[in-house]
């Protein structure tokens, strides 16, 4: 088992770097200021390793192979990593082209591809698809929020993210974490006067009205969950952010007035 304090030294693009055992190549690269591109990586989540744009070439002894930097743990000294070899550039270009062909409708992906000189592709394009199936929405919902409201449906080329049986998920609390982590912005959330809507999951969540101003501000179920999970004063979650700020201002002014009065007294 990994001893927490062991330090491993490796070389990335010819530059040596020492990191604690178990550090990923991606993190080790960042320490050196070498930015390895990623799409499905999020610092709050365990690496899923599926988009494959973070591929690097590693050399251990005589064995050379391609691995993903986001989840390859450095466990010994002497690893030689190349983030931009000819093989990697060629492979990465194909992976990016595959993503571009899938998500030609996504401005984010087109811009991402353009950074690597891939402006267009002659591969078969899919119309209207903006999801790259990075899995961040599914993983954040299950692993961080603990709801598992969404998952994957079908397999292979038919794989997609979905709610159970294509109906609104009973588990969705309308927290918007999936919206926040989505790298292509293909999950949209909208706060209507009374409800919060996440179209992609057919979620329509009633919102709580601010105790102070009466304006709807957050999904009731999300706030319930937060109440149980965060050590916050109950009243804090019953007000909208604006009223919270106002309340805090009032309290501060009140304190200052009281202090002054005390001196005067």
């Amino acid at each position: 088992m990994a001893e927490p304090d062991r330090i491993c030294t490796l070389e990335i693009d010819g530059k040596p770097v020492s990191v604690p055992e178990g550090t990923t190549i991606l993190e080790a690269g960042r320490k050196l200021g070498i930015e390895i591109p990623t799409l499905c990586h999020h610092p709050a989540l365990e690496p899923y390793g599926v988009c494959r744009v973070c591929i690097v070439e590693i050399k251990r002894g005589r064995r050379v192979r391609v691995v993903t930097a986001c989840n390859f743990p450095v466990e010994e000294d002497g690893l030689e990593v190349s983030t931009n070899s000819e093989r990697i550039r060629k492979d990465r270009r194909v992976v990016i082209e595959l993503l571009l062909a899938r998500c030609f409708s996504s401005p984010v992906i087109r811009e991402f591809a353009a950074r690597f000189g891939v402006i267009d592709t002659d591969l078969e394009k899919t119309d209207g698809e903006e999801c790259i199936l990075c899995g961040l929405c599914v993983n954040v919902c299950r692993d961080l929020i603990g709801q598992a409201a969404i998952g994957f449906e079908s397999r292979g080329a038919d794989r997609k993210t979905a709610t159970p049986f294509g109906t609104p998920s009973e588990e969705c609390i309308g927290c918007g974490a999936c919206v926040y982590v989505c790298p292509t912005g293909c999950i949209k959330m909208e706060d209507l006067p009374e409800e919060r809507m996440i179209d992609r999951w057919m979620s329509l969540m009633p919102c709580l009205k601010c105790r102070s101003c009466g304006k709807a501000f957050g999904s009731v179920r999300q706030l319930e969950l937060l109440k149980n999970r965060q050590p916050l004063v109950k009243s804090y979650l019953e007000m909208c952010p604006q009223c919270r700020a106002k309340g805090l201002g009032e309290a501060l002014v009140g304190q200052a007035v009281a202090k002054k009065e005390a001196y005067a007294g």
Binding site: G49, R52, L98, R102, L123, L133, R155, G156, A157
Partner: peptide
Amino acid sequence: LKGESCGKCTPCREGIKQ
């Protein structure tokens, strides 16, 4: 293999299809 790919990673899912 296209039918049996799980679809998790890009190259297998999209590459075999192309």
